[in-house]
């Protein structure tokens, strides 16, 4: 897939916000792909974490919003501890999630969950899920 890059496609503000929220220097990434290799959820992701970082470097905000990667992430920190460049990728994923969640959008609707599902789930499943996927 060719990617056109120009002043118009690069969302500088998006890059800055991800950097600010995550506290990470995303330009350190040299695209080795260790993150995806270490990620237990990568088999379930539409786009590998490595590509999300590249897209972030290029400020492709809308393109990232089309992917489910950060919503499939389980915040397990495998990428974080394995990154040879020392990027805390779990924080980058969180930053990308928050840019959506902070617009008062939910990726899981607590009120719509079937009662039976809520009854059987351990409390920590609900607490962690709502913290990571609701606004």
């Amino acid at each position: 897939m060719p990617i056109n890059i120009s002043d118009k496609t690069i969302k500088r503000e998006f890059i800055d916000k991800v950097a600010y929220l995550s506290g990470q220097d995303i330009y350190k990434c040299f695209q080795c792909g260790t993150c995806g290799g270490a990620c237990p959820m990568s088999g379930e992701m539409d786009v590998m974490p490595r590509r999300i970082v590249r897209m972030t470097q290029l400020g492709l905000e809308e393109a990232i919003a089309q992917t489910k990667t950060c919503w499939t992430c389980a915040s397990c920190h495998s990428c974080t501890v394995n990154c040879p460049r020392g990027i805390d990728l779990a924080r980058v994923m969180e930053a990308i999630r928050l840019l959506t969640l902070r617009k008062n959008e939910n990726m899981v609707e607590p009120s719509k969950l079937p009662g039976e599902t809520v009854k059987e789930m351990p409390q920590i499943a609900m607490v962690s899920c709502f913290r990571k996927l609701t606004s």
């Binding site: 389980a74 495998s78 899920c129």
Partner: peptide, 12 residues
């Protein structure tokens, strides 16, 4: 040390 899927059991 592989994650069990964690809270995604509720979302996905």
């Amino acid at each position: 040390f592989t994650c069990c899927g964690s809270y995604q059991i509720l979302a996905n």
